[in-house]
Simulated scan of single mutants.
Amino acid sequence: MVDGAAGRLEPLLTRILGDPLPVGVRAWDGSGIGPAGTPVFVVRDRRALRRLLWRPGEIGLVRAYVTGELDIEGDVCTALGALQRVLRHDDEAIRLSGDDKREIVRTAVMLGAVGPEPKAPPEEGGKGLLEDTPEELYSRMAGDSRALGAGRWAGATTLAEAQRADEERIAAGLALEPGASVLELNAGWASFSARLAREYGAEVTAVTSFGVTPPEGVRVLPFVPAEGSYDVIVALAGVLPLHGVIGELAALLRPGGRLLVRQPVHRRDSVQRPFTSDYVFGSEEELPTLGSFAEVLDAVGLEVRGVTALREDYARTLRAWAAGLQQGPLEDGRARTWLLHLATTALAAEAGRIGLYELDSVLR
């Protein structure tokens, strides 16, 4: 029998999560339960339990983690995956019985965790994850690759190798003529734009919020230009839905111009998660389905010429980014939100609930 706060939590946790527990748990007083060799959920403050008491399930867990009241030691994807296997059935969260709820309240009272509902962290209900994310966080995620698109992992063992293989494949497939005008969105450090200018003689405009020195042959802008006539527009990075701006992008293409975009999509029968809507995209955004995104392209005169599924490569890239982010301190709510987003998206992609598709289209 384990003493301390963890010992008091053990009967409740095994009731909900199963016996043996799939993960370790360590309480604020240093007491711990769970099997050795697994990730550990660290309850740093009783307030984390109070959040779960008021909001049992995903939102309570997310709020406790984003505020730092709950922590994870070990690989975050493994930790969340272990919980998902016992808490979820397809897209349905676990349903607590009346007895479960009464046991939660009884345990919370014993541990002194009862009180008014804590305020939600400021990261919840804002404009979304990408708003004002510092460049340093992106740099930690990307590592040496300095690229923010999904890598191609066939034959690759590191993120840098996967990203390099991806850029080489895309650049060769664009078959650019010298002097071709290219617009790259979400260009990050403009490394791919620099490749197109250097190796293919393209005239490239890179749209990025990063403070980069423009590479030779590349014009850097902090926003999408209002007008232009481009031969190619590429958008290979980023998590925000693009279907709301496809018409604006089509207007920047010359007749016969090419739009190559990557778009995360959700399965038609999947359920929008509160974490995704409240923290990642903001309340006004939602991932499209593959079919609805193709319809948006068609509606503005873009003919889809090719579709490439990248779900498995996307999941592995997300895991690599999460590992990179965990190499540094998770000092604020935004860094913690990013880590949760990367881990939960990787797990959703591995389970087939979401995917990533590369759509190649031409303006008719």
Rank of each mutant, 00 (worst) to 15 (best):
P329G: 07
E184V: 02
D45I: 00
G125V: 11
L52I: 04
L290H: 12
T344S: 06
G60F: 02
A48E: 01
T133F: 12
L80E: 04
Y314P: 12
S270A: 14
Q163K: 07
P134K: 15
R63T: 09
A154P: 09
G57H: 08
L129V: 13
V265M: 06
D75A: 04
P329W: 11
L259V: 08
S277H: 09
R146E: 15
A79Q: 04
G125F: 12
L249R: 11
R169W: 00
P288D: 02
S361Q: 00
T213D: 15
G143P: 15
V23W: 11
N186I: 12
T14E: 07
V86G: 06
L21N: 03
V218M: 11
V220N: 07
G125A: 09
E117K: 13
R319I: 11
G34C: 10
A165G: 14
L176A: 00
G173Y: 02
T213F: 14
E358S: 14
D132Y: 08
L87M: 15
G151H: 08
P39M: 02
P255A: 12
S292F: 05
L339V: 00
P121C: 05
I233K: 13
G333H: 05
V212C: 07
L302M: 09
A180T: 04
N186T: 13
E199K: 13
S193C: 01
T78F: 02
R219K: 15
W54L: 08
A6P: 08
G291D: 07
G238Q: 06
G128K: 10
W28I: 05
P264R: 04
L196P: 07
A348G: 03
L9F: 07
P222N: 09
I170N: 03
